[in-house]
Amino acid sequence: MTDIPGLPSRRSFLKASAAGMALSGLALPASAQNAPAPVPLDQYQPDYLTADEWAFVMAATARLIPSEGDGPGALEARVPVFIDLQLAGDYGTADDWYMEGPHDANAEPARGWQTPLNPAEVYRQAIPAFNAWCEETYQAEFAALEPAQQDEALTALQKGEVGLPAEVRDFFTILLANTKEGYFADPQYGGNFEMQSWVYIGFPGARAAFREWPTRHNVKYPLGPVSISGERA
């Protein structure tokens, strides 16, 4: 047994888990419903997005994951907040990525991210370009369109029919990916409000302790999710 001085001992940890302490039972203070209400989306002050960009992200995510039907929509899940915070952070600035030139933004998609722009810059340049296409096609910017037209416009964007410059060609791909991330990520990142998406699909979040479950075949797991901060739903 080799415990490192200054760190909690492995022996005591193993004893604790052997004694059957349910780890996901630790630190679960409040249920999600008791948390203070967050600022409403229409009063949210974005960290990165401008007012126009915020209006676009609100409108676009509301179509990518609409509120209608079962389960939360992107707005109920506060996905726009997630996107704003991600773009303001090291994802937006591509801190971890290799961004040295020369860049070949026209390279085939299978060659990966090749634009000189980081994700935050892609949003910044693509939103006005896409809005201009909407103006031309529907005589109104995206946020002002009817839902059916918005769906049509997003479909054109997805299919690459909008004529965006090569540098922002991947805009739809990252917008959709970021929307789903915000829908399913732990609520600490600003989306997945009250873990509604996890409740909807039956994902138990950060429970991460299923010792007796592997052999319970074809039995639906009954417990609702917990978040990293200890919320329950």
Partner: peptide, 14 residues
């Protein structure tokens, strides 16, 4: 994406 996707994840996850 869209309503069909949301319905799909509810129906098929798990």
């Amino acid at each position: 994406w869209g309503a069909g996707w949301k319905e799909g994840i509810g129906e098929w996850y798990g």
